[in-house]
């Protein structure tokens, strides 16, 4: 499946990325681009290589081959929000934000922390230990940490998995606001409806291979069964290709 050209300048260009764990080829020759302000969903069955791909893009795992490039002159790191909350349970909300703001090297850590507390609606819980917060609030802090450095590209691994519907709604409102400010967001999810609702473009990964790169409507059209439901179209699409 050829990579669709994006209409605006790419915020991130991924070219021929591969990763192998022993005998397992987790990611094979994946290439795509994401534009500034674009919301890109990555879907695929379990073990498709979604988290591995995002880990490579985040710089956590080195790729065996290929490249991940930001536009020339970009100095900001790619923002990273892992699936499980990656913050210190014994520190308060504010201490976690301040620590990561300092590690990210932001110019004014205190102002940034105040801004993130305000944006996430956690200002009143700033002095609470993370371990005493609900799962939803911890996830909000988790996402806030990923946004501290105001990254041009934000990677979210299953961002709404631990959230109830109201928190999920609030999260997507927050993410949409980010894209409106020009942040490119790539998220992976098992929830096909969420991908259809929020993803402007969808990547389908299976066994580490990029099988599809296009809109939800194009994915439905690509399914030979001509399914009208994206989830059914997705399953048919994978079955048609032997997955």
């Amino acid at each position: 499946m050829p990579v669709d050209a994006v209409t605006t300048a790419p915020a991130l260009t991924v070219q021929g990325v591969s990763k192998r764990f022993g005998e397992l080829q987790a990611v094979r020759d994946v290439s795509f681009e994401v534009a500034a302000g674009e919301l890109l969903a990555v879907i695929g069955p379990n073990g498709a290589g979604k988290t591995t791909l995002l880990s490579i893009l985040a710089g956590i795992l080195p790729a065996d081959g290929g490249s991940v490039a930001q536009p020339e002159g970009t100095t900001e790191r790619i923002g990273w929000v892992p699936q499980q909350t990656a913050i210190y349970g014994k520190l308060t909300v504010a201490q976690n934000l301040r620590l990561f703001a300092k590690l990210e090297g932001v110019a004014d850590p205190d102002a940034t922390v105040a801004r993130m507390l305000d944006q996430t609606g956690l200002a009143e819980r700033a002095g609470d230990e993370l371990g005493k917060l609900s799962g939803g609030n911890r996830q909000r802090v988790n996402i806030a940490v990923g946004l501290l450095a105001d990254p041009p590209v934000l990677l979210l691994d299953e961002p709404s998995g631990a959230l109830d519907p109201r928190q999920r709604e609030r999260l997507w409102g927050f993410i949409t606001a980010l894209t409106e400010r020009g942040t490119a967001v790539i998220f992976c999810t098992h929830d096909i409806a969420e991908a259809e609702r929020h993803g402007q473009r969808i990547l389908v990964l299976a066994d580490g291979e990029l099988l599809f790169n296009g809109t939800a409507a194009e994915l439905k059209a690509a399914s030979q069964a001509g399914e009208r439901d994206l989830e059914q179209a997705f399953v048919s699409f994978l079955r048609d290709r032997g997955h």
Binding site: S55, G59, I60, R77, I78, W80, Q84, A86, Y88, L103
Partner: peptide
């Protein structure tokens, strides 16, 4: 799970 953040 903070190691993944730090390892970036």
């Amino acid at each position: 799970n903070t190691f993944s953040r730090l390892a970036r």
